[in-house]
Each structure stands twice: as structure tokens, then as C-alpha cells.
Design a binder for these strands. Structure first.
Lengths: 124, 124
DNA sequence: GTCATTGCAAACGCTTTGCATCTGT
DNA sequence: ACAGATGCAAAGCGTTTGCAATGAC
């Protein structure tokens, strides 16, 4: 199923950064694409459920979305512009599993994000 | 500065789990402690700023708080009851720094949480 | 008496939902 | 014609804030 849903996926694919629903909405609108905020939210939710985009939460609780590869990976994210690099972390995967098992926790999972300021972003 | 702020810290210290502001508020009220929701939020914010409690965000964006040791550490968290174990992860620290540097990101930071179901929680 | 803290209710920001309309097949 | 997608406005939910009342020293 599709429509302006394509537009959203397209907008996400064009960026290598995590974007918020509100940002995407504003960008699409100011680019002349007529679209409703609710549609953006619904599309992002659908895409996230399907595993086509990754979701993460800002410190303030806002959800950020990014078009991502399907296999398991983590992110290196610029705190300033949001630019993101996918990184593999096999060693970390194994560490997380070992930690869980050692403490008697079953069904292990983990979240890992690395932040920094990318080289294209100004000093302060 | 203190008052029912002590009560909140006390309630947090008694638990080894991450709790939400709303949960803490409900618990204190039903325990007969008169307190306002805004006070709970303000106290938690102050404690977090002072580094006396750790904060993390639920998948749904809710903030969870836990009394924590002061030095850097990560958490192994039960998805069912919230019970949390602090874990060291020196290898992961080094890995995160290396990843950031390798991609030209400065001022590196990272978040790492490990989730599971603790041995005291039922199969489901 | 002074100044920070508290409590309540109102305001906020992000997200979701109800519902009527529209679109694609 | 039908099932699903859309848009809008209203509702929801966690969190924050304005302000008058209260409490600590």
C-alpha cells in the first residue's frame, strides 16, 4: 500500500540522518508536498513496524527515524546535525549476551548508540 | 535543599529498579505520603542534574529514574519488573571511542543498555 | 522576614485517534 | 463498490510552568 507514503520513504532515503516526524512534515510541506501530520506519523509507524526504518528516542523523548539496512547494526550519530553512520559491533553483541547470561537474565537484547560531533559540523 | 525530596530519594534508594515519575507519585500517595506530582518531577529533575539518579527513556518515550552509583556504568534491566544491575563495560567504552574516532567524530559519548527477563520473573 | 519549595491547575509538545472524505483497483 | 489511506481537529499522555500559598531557617 502506498501514496504519499512513498514520498516519506523517499525523503528518508535521501538523508543519512535521523529525523523527527515533525521535521519531515515541515520539510515536505515547505517543499510543496501536500501532506497531513497524521499521515506522516502513521507512515513512519508502519515503516518502523515493517523494519524498514530504525527508531530512536531523543533525550527529550522525541522519536527520530532513519531509513536503515535490514540486518542488525548500531549507529554513530552526530549530536549536531544528526548525520548517522551504521556500524557493526559483533564484539558488543557477544558482550551483551554474556552479561545477561552471567546475571541469570534470559531473552537478552540491547541498545547501543554512539554519539559525537561529525567533522562537517562547526566547533562549538 | 530538601523536604519530601528526601522521601523521593529514599523511595528510589529502596528499589533497585527503574521507576517512572508517575509510578513513584502513585506509590508515595498510596503509602500515605502527601506529595504533588509536580514536586516529584521537579525533584527527579534536580536529582538527575546532580548526577544522583540515572535516567533512561522507555520505547514509548516515558522517562525512568533510578538511584545509581556515581561512576560511569551501564545497566542490565529486566523488561518485566524493571530490576536493574549495574555493569561495568570497559571494553565497550574503548570500542565506542574507537568507532567515533575512526569516522572522524569528536567528543564521543555513548549509550548502552542490556535488557532481558530476570530469573525472578515468570515465563509469561 | 526572606527565599526556596510545594501544590494545583493550566499550558505544552509530541503522538494518536475518531471520523468523514478520498483514492486506487 | 470496497478496503485502505488521508486530513483535520480533537483527544491523550507525560512533562513543564505560572502563581499563590506554605515551610524552613
Amino acid at each position: 500500500m502506498t501514496r504519499q507514503r512513498d514520498t516519506i520513504l523517499e525523503a528518508l532515503t535521501a538523508e543519512d540522518a535521523f529525523r523527527s516526524a515533525q521535521e519531515l512534515y515541515a520539510d515536505l510541506r515547505s517543499a510543496g508536498t501536500p501532506i497531513g501530520l497524521a499521515t506522516v506519523y502513521r507512515a513512519l509507524q508502519t515503516l518502523a513496524d515493517a523494519g524498514d526504518v530504525d527508531v530512536l528516542r531523543t533525550e527529550s523523548g522525541e522519536a527520530l527515524y532513519r531509513r536503515c539496512g535490514t540486518r542488525h547494526h548500531h549507529h554513530l550519530i552526530c549530536r549536531s546535525c544528526g548525520k548517522t553512520v551504521e556500524v557493526a559491533a559483533d564484539a558488543v553483541e557477544r558482550w551483551a549476551q554474556a552479561v545477561a547470561r552471567r546475571h541469570g537474565f534470559r531473552d537478552p537484547a540491547h541498545t547501543v548508540e554512539v554519539y559525537g560531533i561529525c567533522r562537517d559540523c562547526p566547533e562549538s
